[in-house]
Design a protein around this nucleic acid. Sequence first.
DNA 1: TGTCCTTTTGGCAGCGCTGCCAAATGAATT
DNA 2: AATTCATTTGGCAGCGCTGCCAAAAGGACA
Lengths: 334, 334
Amino acid sequence: MDGRGKTAATVTLAEVAAAAGVGESTVSRVLRNHGSFSAKTRDRVMEAVNRLGYVPNMIAGTLASAGSRLVGIVVPSFSNIVFADVLRGASQAMEGSGHQAVIGVSDYDPAREEELIASMLSWRPAAILLAGLEHTERARAMLTGGGARVAEMLDIDGPGLDLVVGFATAETGRASARHLLARGYRRIGYVGHDLTRDTRAAKRLAGFEAALADAGLALTDRDIAPVPSSVEVGRDGLDRLLARAPDLDAVYFSNDDMAVGGYFLCLSRGIAIPDRLALFGYNGLDVARLTPQPIATIRTPRVRIGELAAQLALSGAPAQTVDVGFEVIEGATA
Amino acid sequence: MDGRGKTAATVTLAEVAAAAGVGESTVSRVLRNHGSFSAKTRDRVMEAVNRLGYVPNMIAGTLASAGSRLVGIVVPSFSNIVFADVLRGASQAMEGSGHQAVIGVSDYDPAREEELIASMLSWRPAAILLAGLEHTERARAMLTGGGARVAEMLDIDGPGLDLVVGFATAETGRASARHLLARGYRRIGYVGHDLTRDTRAAKRLAGFEAALADAGLALTDRDIAPVPSSVEVGRDGLDRLLARAPDLDAVYFSNDDMAVGGYFLCLSRGIAIPDRLALFGYNGLDVARLTPQPIATIRTPRVRIGELAAQLALSGAPAQTVDVGFEVIEGATA
DNA sequence: TGTCCTTTTGGCAGCGCTGCCAAATGAATT
DNA sequence: AATTCATTTGGCAGCGCTGCCAAAAGGACA
C-alpha cells in the first residue's frame, strides 16, 4: 500500500552463488576483487551476476563489515555557489574511491545542522564534512564520538575537531580593508546580510573593521539586511546606504552577489565606478569577474577545499589544519 | 591503519536495553514511537539512551526492515543554479519525513549517470530522482527493476519510467521564438553551449527553430561553444556571432548565464538594448532579473519541481506525468 | 476473588553480507 | 608416488536491528 511494490524479487548473493555453483564467500570475493580466486571461477560468477541482474546490497555489506562508504556532508545552503563549489570538489575526490555523498542542508541554522549530523551519524559514515567551525555543543559531542572522521571546511579561525581545511576568514576582511585604504579610500561603508546566521560573513566584517581601526578609522555607515544574501539585497542595501551617507567613497559588501547588486545600482544611477564610489566584494564569483568592470574581490579556492577535505578525511590523514589561502582580485571597481 | 579508529566503542541497542532493564524490542518501539509502551518505560529507555549517548544504527535497521529512508538523486552539475534549486526543493520535501538525500553528480555524462544509479541502487533507496528523460539503456533497465520509485525531473517531452515532473522543454523554445517574432524581430541569432551534453538545451533550440520555421524563418546565424555554459562563454559567443552577422536584431541564448554574458558585452560595447539588439535567455535567474534592464527570459518552477518529485515519489503516488508549466518573463531586453 | 479482554513486554529468528577458519585442490619438489 | 607449500574454496557465525508471536501484566466487571 506504499507504492513500493517488490515486484521483481530482489536477487541475493546466495542466489548468485547457487546459480554459479560456488560458495557465497567466493561470490563475495569475486565481486569485491578481494582475496584470491581462479579466472574460471570469476567468469562463472560474473556470468551468473549478469544473467540474474544482481545488484549488491551495500546495506548488508556495510553492516557485516562495519564501516560504510558513505560520507555525510552538511552545507548551509545549496543556492550559494560557494557550497556548490565545495560539494563539487568533495564529489570529485570521492569519485572512484567508491564513496557516496549523503548531503543535508542546514539553512544556516545550527540546530538544524545538529539534527542533520545526528541522522547522518546513524548511517555510520566514514566521514562527515561540515562548513565552518561553529557547531552546537551537542553536535561537537556527537562528532567527537570517534566513529567518523570530521572535516570542517572554509574557515580556519579557531580550533577544529579533527581536520580543518580553509583559510583565515577574518584575514580576508583585513586584506579587503587594507586594499581600500591603500587606494586612498577613507569614507567606507558596509552593505551586508543576515550576520547572525552567516557567521563567516560576520568574521569578515570583524576583520575588516579591525584593519580600519588599525588605521585610526571606522566604518562611516552600514546597512545590514536581516535576510540571506542576494543580488537584490545588495542593490537595495546600497541604495539605502547611499541615501543615508551620500558622501561615501567606497563600500565593502558581504559577498559578490551583494556587490553585483550594488554594481547594478551604480550602473542604473550613473554613479561612476571607482571614481565616485569604489566597490569591494568577496568570493571571486564568475559573474563578478565578467561585469563590464570586474569587481574587486577575494577569491578563495573552494573546489580545492572540498576536494582536500574529502581526500584527507578518507585517506586517514592525521588531525590537522590546512590553510589553502586566498587571493585578492584587484578588479576595476576599487 | 586507516585512521578510522573505533576508539569509542559503539553503543548498541542491546546495551541500551540492558541499561534500562527492558527488552530490545521495547527499546526499538520507544525509539521509533511505534507500537505501544507505557510512559514509565519510555522514560526509563530515554534516560538510558541519553546517558549512554546511543545513536541508532540505520544500516542495521534498514537491513532488518527492508526499505531504506535514503533517496538517491543524480544531477548533471552542482554549479548550475537550476539543479541547486531542484535539490533545495527535494531536500525540503524530505525534511521531516526522515529521508536522507544521497547525491551524485553526473557531469552531464550518461555513462557516469548510469554508474551513479547503479551504486545508489545498492543502497536500496526508497526513490531515485533524476534530471531529464534521457538515460542509458542499462540505466533504464536497472531503474525498472521495481525496487525504488523513480522520478524524472524538469523535462516532460517524452515517455517516463514512472513519475515525471517538469514542463514542456521544447515548448519553452517555441514560446521564446514567438515572443521575439511578435515583437517584430526577424534576423535572429543563437548563442549556445555544448548541446550534445545538455540535451534539454538542445530541445529548447529545436523548439525555437521549429517556431521560426512556422513563421517561414530560420536562424540567421548561431555560435555554439563546445563547453559548459557560463557568463564568459555567453559573452564571447555573442562577440563572435556579431562579428560574423553584424546585422542581427535579436539573439536567443541557451540560458540566462549566457544571456547575462551577452548583456555585459552589449554594455561594454555600448550596443543599445533592445533597439539595436534584443536578448532572450532562459531560466529566470535572479541576476538576470536585476541587471539594469531585466533580461527577457523564461522562468521555470524549479524548486517546486524538486519538491513535488520527492513528495510524489515518497508518498506512493501512482506513476504519472505532472506538467508544472513555465512563464515568459518579458523583461526589458526584448 | 475469578474471568475475560486489552495493553505492554520480551525472546528470537532472520535481513544479506563479510571475515575467519578449516578444508580441498593444485603445483612443485623430492 | 609421496611430501610440502601455496592457492582456492566453502561453511558459518555474526553485524545491530525489526517483526512476529507468545507471554505477562493490568483493568473492568461479575
